[in-house]
Design a protein around this nucleic acid. Structure first.
Length: 292
DNA sequence: AAGCTAAGCAACCGCGAAAAG
DNA sequence: GCTTTTCGCGGTTGCTTAGCT
């Protein structure tokens, strides 16, 4: 069955955003919160596709975006998270406060991919074990500079499901899928710093959450993983039995940027992913049972 | 200084999944 | 339970800029 286009595409602006468009979008979202991307451009007075608005907001305009200068610690974490999760940019980004999936993806494709191909002795020792366990995932097209122009579109993409038998098997992670939680109820605040007007939907976190220190929050989340043993990649089954997606909880909002914590977080992930298979299977079926 | 190439990054596209009707 | 709509993700493209000859 056909799929309706996300927008008419007729008469819509494309390409780089102007400061005026940025201002309109920011103003609208500050007043009304995120979500309803389809209708947002019209309401905000923008001649843009809703997807474009969302992307612009998520990757550039959000107040908590941290731009530029990936630190060595972040760099290291990205490499190691990638070795565990593969090209799950949004998951990796969710663990790096202020970083976006697009930024991390670009960073990987331009810097780290090369680095992985020509590892220094230090890198080699640091990551060798993980690299053995998970196949090197090429960036979609590497650092190719296709000056041949023209859109080849998704022909390669269609092959991604592993028709190439020569490829080594990927590390499979059998964990429950996150479920989508409506932004209206659990907005993606990302925000220890990102607070709109008090009536904004973006300020949905409870007072308790707001008062809780980042460290407390982090350790709580860590204990959620430990106690409940229920994390997808990586949704959490919270004690009061609300199944939510961690990316909606935005635990990264609560993670302090100190790098000891990033290291701790990595170790937790690594531990989860190295649990034996029966645990994965149980977790998977448990998660699925919740989702049916 | 001009032309060329590579690198970096913002933005677009299509698809899958979940929500809504 | 089926269809349609909406959202979010990952892959890809193409513009801009830096570096080199």
């Amino acid at each position: 069955m056909g799929r309706a286009p996300c927008c008419s595409k007729v008469g819509l602006h494309k390409g780089p955003w102007t400061p005026k468009e940025d201002a309109l979008l920011t103003k609208y979202i500050q007043a009304h919160g995120e979500g309803q991307w389809k209708s947002l451009p019209k309401k905000a007075g923008l001649l843009r596709c809703g997807k474009s608005c969302r992307l612009r907001w998520m990757n550039y305009l959000r107040p908590d975006i941290k731009r530029g200068n990936i630190t060595p610690e972040e760099d290291d974490l990205i490499i190691r998270m990638h070795s565990l999760l593969g090209n799950r940019w949004s998951l990796i980004a969710g663990r790096l406060p202020g970083r976006t999936d697009n930024e991390i993806k670009n960073y990987w494709n331009t810097h780290l991919c090369k680095k992985m191909k020509t590892p220094t002795a230090e890198d080699a020792t640091d990551t060798a074990n993980m690299m053995l366990e998970s196949p090197e995932q090429e960036p979609a097209s590497g650092n190719k500079k296709k000056k041949n122009g023209g859109k080849k579109k998704n022909k390669q993409k269609k092959n991604k499901e592993g028709t190439n038998s020569a490829e080594p098997p990927k590390t499979q992670v059998y964990l429950p899928k996150p479920i989508r939680v409506k932004a209206l109820y659990l907005p993606r605040t990302d925000s220890n710093t990102y607070t709109f007007d008090s009536n904004s939907s973006a300020s949905a976190s409870t007072n308790q959450e707001k008062e809780e220190s980042p460290l407390t929050k982090e350790s709580n989340l860590a204990s959620e993983i430990g106690n409940v043993g229920e994390s997808d990649d990586f949704g959490f089954f919270i004690e009061d039995h609300d199944l939510v997606n961690a990316s909606d909880i935005e635990c990264h909002s609560y993670f302090p940027s100190d790098h000891g914590s990033l290291q701790q977080l990595y170790e937790e992930y690594y531990h989860l992913l190295n649990m034996d298979h029966t645990q994965f299977i149980e977790m998977n079926s448990f998660g699925e049972s919740l989702l049916v």
